[in-house]
Structures are given as C-alpha cells and as structure tokens.
Computed example of a mutant assay.
Amino acid sequence: MADAYAITLRCHDGDAARFRRVLAEIAGPSRAEEGNVVFETHQAPDDENAFFVYESYRDEAAYEAHLATPWFKRVEEELFPALADRAVQRYVTIDAAR
C-alpha cells in the first residue's frame, strides 16, 4: 500500500526559473528518503508558471517525515512566498484485500 500526492503549483510571473531550479535540486534528496517510492516534478509545456509534482510514499508517516526534511523546509522558505496557487490531493492505493 502507498500514499500518492498530486500537487499543482502556480508561481507568479518571473518566478518560474527559481521554481525549476529548486524543484530540480530537491528531487534527488527526496527520492533518497527511506519511505519515498516516487518523486517527479513537471512543468507545463505551454505555461511556464504551472508546475505539477507527483510524490508517492510507503505510507502517510513517510510523507509526514518528508515534510520535516531540510529540503522541504527550503521549498517552504524559497517557493511558498512566490506561490500564486497550490493544491495538494492525497490518494491511497486501492487494495482488494482491505
């Protein structure tokens, strides 16, 4: 079973390069976390201010641990002030055995 998070981010005009740089720099450490299954970052090809992050973790506790990492704190400090919009959706694995 895993928890997946679909995160959409919209930055203000002029902040796209910073978003690309920071998201690229935190990808490696995020993927190396013990409970991480997937960490992928995307940018819309037709809208430089639109980003999508897909993350999957072993369980909700692993995601909570991710939120406490220095690289996520960096996102809070460097990117959150430049956000025009942010949405986080959580999904859980469908398991017929449950």
Rank of each mutant, 00 (worst) to 15 (best):
V38H: 15
V38E: 14
V38S: 14
V38R: 11
V38G: 09
E40N: 15
T41V: 08
T41A: 05
H42Y: 11
Q43H: 05
Q43Y: 04
A44S: 09
A44V: 09
A44H: 12
P45R: 11
P45V: 13
D46K: 05
D46I: 04
D47P: 06
D47M: 07
D47F: 06
D47E: 10
E48H: 09
E48N: 09
E48P: 14
N49A: 14
N49I: 11
A50Q: 10
A50D: 11
A50L: 14
A50F: 13
F51D: 01
F51V: 00
F51N: 00
F52D: 01
F52N: 02
F52H: 04
V53R: 00
V53D: 00
V53E: 00
Y54E: 05
Y54P: 03
Y54D: 03
E55I: 01
E55D: 04
S56N: 05
S56H: 05
Y57F: 08
R58K: 11
R58M: 06
R58L: 09
R58A: 11
R58G: 07
R58I: 09
D59N: 10
E60K: 11
E60W: 10
A62P: 03
Y63E: 07
E64P: 03
E64D: 11
H66R: 00
H66L: 00
H66F: 00
H66T: 00
A68D: 10
A68H: 09
A68W: 06
A68F: 07
A68Q: 15
T69I: 04
T69L: 03
P70F: 03
W71M: 12
F72H: 02
F72A: 01
F72L: 01
K73H: 13
R74N: 09
V75T: 08
V75I: 13
E76Q: 12
E76S: 10
E77T: 15
E78F: 08
E78S: 08
L79S: 04
L79Q: 05
F80M: 13
F80P: 07
P81T: 08
P81H: 08
P81K: 08
A82C: 14
A82D: 13
L83C: 02
L83D: 02
A84W: 06
A84Y: 07
A84F: 08
R86T: 02
R86A: 04
R86W: 02
R86S: 04
A87E: 12
V88G: 02
V88F: 02
Q89W: 14
Q89M: 10
R90S: 05
Y91P: 00
Y91D: 02
V92Q: 15
V92D: 15
T93I: 06
T93Q: 12
I94W: 15
D95S: 09
D95V: 10
D95N: 10
D95Q: 09
D95W: 06
A96Q: 14
A96P: 13
A96T: 14
